[in-house]
């Protein structure tokens, strides 16, 4: 499998990928704190975008409630840490399990009862919103007044407890984002990956060929949910505070899907490219408006909306396939 991955890459791809990885690994030594925090958030969106991409881009199931899995992961690990002193290195697995279970419930209800397309998307939103309101009344984790993790002075790094400097968090999310990219790429090359794409392109045809559509769609949701939950754990321990509206809100779910759509649905590098594009643009815009002395909330989101609209109107396949072709990288495109 690993060899497959290597042989598919041209020298040009390999050189570019290595350069990018080296640049990102070296970043903490070169850039300042502010820029590092920007790249860190970009990598976070690349990571959760990749998890969403697995479900939508490869398996073709449109979820608009991925904030649910982020939130469940975040709250599970944080609650275990605060209430029972369970370190996130272990809490992580509980977080993944809880999110996977939630994904399994949603997937079961949807696929068992034939809910698809728009109805499926609405079902995912309904679950996320339901949970948001539930957590707003869940006093054990602070309800609307928020849930806080103890902030310690961040001089040493403790990976087990996920307490440490921002550089540590940077490397954690870099590893996660790179790992997710490789993981999704490898998974897509397996039999399972081909089943997913068959279901995405034509579910009835896939079923006629004897693919157990229900089982593989369930797997897509469960894997994607568990991956997304890891992002939630990271978020909880990086920010040290959780608010239901902030974590489960529908705007969070939308944020997750922007990067992979802009980069290119179903491409492996698309979520990364998309995350960097909107990350840089959003940050640049914030700085520009601040420098101009305009304090307007919403301008960043407005521009996201405009970009999303232009992309889906003009290049629904996303930007990465275009860029890749221009630069001569090999790319497996999503047909359609």
């Amino acid at each position: 499998m690993i060899r497959n991955l290597a042989t598919e890459l041209s020298t040009r791809d390999a050189v570019a990928a290595t350069t990018l990885v080296l640049l990102l690994v070296a970043a903490p030594f070169v850039v300042g704190d502010y820029l590092l925090s920007v790249i860190l958030i970009i990598l976070y969106f690349a990571y959760v975008g990749q998890a969403w991409n697995l479900m939508m881009g490869i398996a073709g199931q449109l979820s608009l409630g991925h904030a649910l899995y982020v939130g469940l992961g975040a709250y599970t690990a944080a609650a275990l840490f605060v209430h029972f002193d369970v370190p996130p290195a272990i809490g992580l697995f509980a977080a993944m399990a809880v999110a996977a279970l939630a994904g399994a419930v949603i997937g079961f209800l949807a696929f068992r009862f034939g809910i698809s397309g728009v109805y499926f998307a609405l079902l995912t939103i309904a679950f996320a919103e339901f949970t948001r309101i539930l957590f707003s009344h869940f006093d054990w984790v602070g309800a609307t007044s928020g849930f806080f993790l103890p902030v310690e002075n961040r001089t040493s790094s403790d990976l087990v407890n996920l307490r440490g400097t921002s550089v540590m968090f940077y490397y954690v999310i870099l590893t996660l984002a790179a790992g997710a990219l490789v993981f999704v790429r490898l998974l897509a090359g397996t039999r399972l990956g081909y089943y997913w794409r068959a279901i995405r392109e034509d579910q009835i045809a896939a079923q006629a060929l004897g693919i157990n559509v229900f089982r593989y769609k369930m797997l897509a949701v469960v894997i994607s949910a568990a991956m997304t939950a890891v992002g939630g754990v990271f978020l909880a321990f990086y920010y040290n505070n959780l608010f239901p509206t902030d974590v489960f809100g529908i705007h969070r779910s939308i944020e997750i899907i922007v990067a992979p759509i802009i980069g290119g649905l179903g491409t492996y590098f698309g979520p990364v490219v998309g995350a960097f594009l909107i990350g840089i643009l959003g940050e640049g815009l914030t700085n520009a408006t601040e420098a101009a002395g305009i304090q307007t909330a919403g301008i960043k989101q407005l521009v996201y909306g405009v970009i999303l609209l232009l992309i889906i109107k003009l290049v629904p396949g996303g930007l990465w396939p275009l860029i890749a072709r221009r630069l001569g990288f090999s790319i497996k495109e999503r047909r359609k």
Partner: peptide, 14 residues
């Protein structure tokens, strides 16, 4: 379908 969805989602965000 998902492209229609995203298009109008974008309109909504704007």
């Amino acid at each position: 379908e998902h492209e229609q969805f995203i298009l109008l989602l974008a309109v909504g965000v704007i």
